[in-house]
Design a protein around this nucleic acid. Structure first.
Lengths: 210, 210, 210, 210
DNA sequence: GATGAATGAGGCTTCATTCAT
DNA sequence: CATGAATGAAGCCTCATTCAT
């Protein structure tokens, strides 16, 4: 209203601006959570990191839990975007390995592995978070089904396998990999190798009868 | 007065008594943690559940973290004791499936799966807990190696496989299973099936060359 | 509603207000400490006396120790302000006697003598407090040097004396006086007399050679 | 009673033994207090250092405050014993300087200077401790009077001075010295020099009219 | 929309002391 | 006399959230 105070890029009720700010806050929050975990990070820390007042946070998120939920959901989108490559992969197993590799080195710039596990743990205790985590998992699983079907079309994954169960198998082993990668004593190379071996042995089209 | 309950104030010349009491506290604590998680359970709750004063807790554990650590360690022992069956199994895969089955139904009367995941998450944030979790994992892995070697001797697991990497593969998939079982939407039967299939396909002795 | 008391919740755009509130808290804290000592006064007592919640205290001071430190520092300023009179005194010894008199009757409205001694005792045990107490002492000593130099210029204090050592002597005897005044059985008049005599005998310009 | 359990040097109701044990406890307590101060030292620490149970402590002292009181009183005796040398000194000022020197280097093996100040501070807050500290001071002052009278007899201290007031002056300056010595930034040599100078100037027999 | 102040509730821990044995 | 266990009371501090401006 006051032309003398345009405050940066405008701060009016511009709805786009609002979303942008929200995103910034999520970024700051993610950095804090990554560093110290959900529980150990206070809303004050987050607001400071985001450059707002602690009350300001509540204009964008109605509670800390909501913020965490939003973060988990956003993270899903980020991961899903990486799945297109998988869905249209020519070499399914190679692409999958690359996917694991990226996630475990956090090249995805998303959640740290620790936060991923923490989300799961949190879901055990908080209904709202549980809802979101479940939704994320369902979506992810659903995508995996498509990935599997594509790989079956290419005859890289055994076409006789049930796509849903196969997706579940991948999900299973993927989370196992995440879990193990959380402990720094575990060597990534080894676990990546082992993980892929298991998947190849279990899923790939058997060629012995040719 | 009641020789079965020499508790209350005063000295129990019996050093065994102390350990027993400690164990009782661990039990109460486990129940609380199982119900509400590590973070949401207060030391006051635990002490109440254990029938002591809040201060009394600190005669047995020097901090909440130590208590949690002791619990995690105790849990390891419980699980390890179940591994003897695995080590001397005649039918490795059948026994393993039973092991998973038990753990996922908590027939082991140990940690809930949620707590297992929570331990992992906690380890990411707390050095002391990390130490204990790592120790637990190392021990568990070490036992798995022996389990694998036995299964190889029986020619049920492919003898050409490296025992250590194979144990890691089992570890990986086991934790994946735990993780998935934490979400009630996931059907145990399905995941158990999928998990076992993956392991059988990946590890069992190939007979195609006969 | 009352423009004189814009307190309560909400933002006081006035940054001065914050300092004022801080000062109020310091006043309340000082009263409590004076009455019961540093250790025996709880943060709750202080906050009640200041009319805030226990948590509110921590908006102004990050810990009880910091509060104590701030108090000690503030006290220094109060005392220093009284030293101008000394620095520009026409009759050094008379002015000094008055200074002692004031301090020992707490006309300075500052720390009670007990608190002064307690600060010293605390400094022996707490590094942060030690730092502040040392700074206070150094400043005080430094001022005393100037006081001495002025008195030497007036030929009331022997000009051949080393100003620094002389200041130390005054410091020494001053603290001795404080200490003794803490015990109510000691008569102020006597000790004031004794203290001044010692100082006069030790410091004043010798005239016997005239 | 049981000849099989003579427990070291006998533990029967031997009253002498009791006193010995008490003394041992006082020693341990003093060490703890010296290291951490009265407040920061817990009765548990003391009992551990003394090699008794925490309940055992209460067989010898009815409370922590009583223990502290006993310690302060014991300390007085130790210091008093060092005053004989002063009372019969040939060279009063030299002997006094030595006395200061010893105390400030803790060659007396008694209280640290910090504890001395702390005692004073404590006396401001606790009636029972106040009583003891006052008694200690009175006794000490009384002894000083005799010391002064002796020095006057030797014509080293001006015989026209009132012995009581003179003793008070020494007391004053002594405590000032103690206080300053508590802060490590203050050089002992300087303060010792200054202290002695002040005393000599203020108290010694004036010879200018000879 | 934004803020700094304020807070109720609660968390973990410590301590001096007592009691039954 | 000696002890280990037990505890009530309290202490300091933190946090998610709200309110007045």
């Amino acid at each position: 209203m006051n032309p003398e105070k345009p405050q940066g890029r405008g701060q009016q009720a511009d709805p786009e601006n609002r979303l942008e700010r929200r995103e910034q806050i999520l970024n700051s929050a993610q950095a804090c959570f990554d560093a110290r975990g959900f529980h150990a990070t206070s809303t004050l820390e987050i607001s400071k990191a985001a450059g707002i007042s602690s009350a300001g946070l509540y204009h964008y998120f109605s509670s800390k839990d909501e913020l965490i939920g939003a973060l988990i959901e956003r993270e899903l989108k980020r991961v899903l975007s990486k799945m297109d490559a998988l869905k249209h992969a020519d070499d399914f197993f190679a692409e999958l390995e690359d996917f694991y590799y990226q996630i475990s080195t956090e090249e995805l710039k998303g959640f740290s592995l620790g936060l991923r596990i923490e989300s799961f743990a949190l879901a055990t205790r908080s209904k709202p978070i549980a809802k979101i985590v479940d939704k994320v998992n369902t979506t992810f699983l659903h995508e995996l089904v498509q990935v599997v079907e594509n790989a079956q079309r290419l005859n890289q994954v055994d076409p006789t396998l049930d796509p849903k169960l196969t997706a579940a198998a991948i999900m299973n082993i993927t989370w196992g990999f995440f879990t193990q990668m959380c402990r720094p004593e575990n060597t990534r190379a080894d676990y990546l190798f082992v993980t892929m071996n298991l998947l190849k042995a279990g899923l790939s089209t058997k060629q012995q009868k040719a």
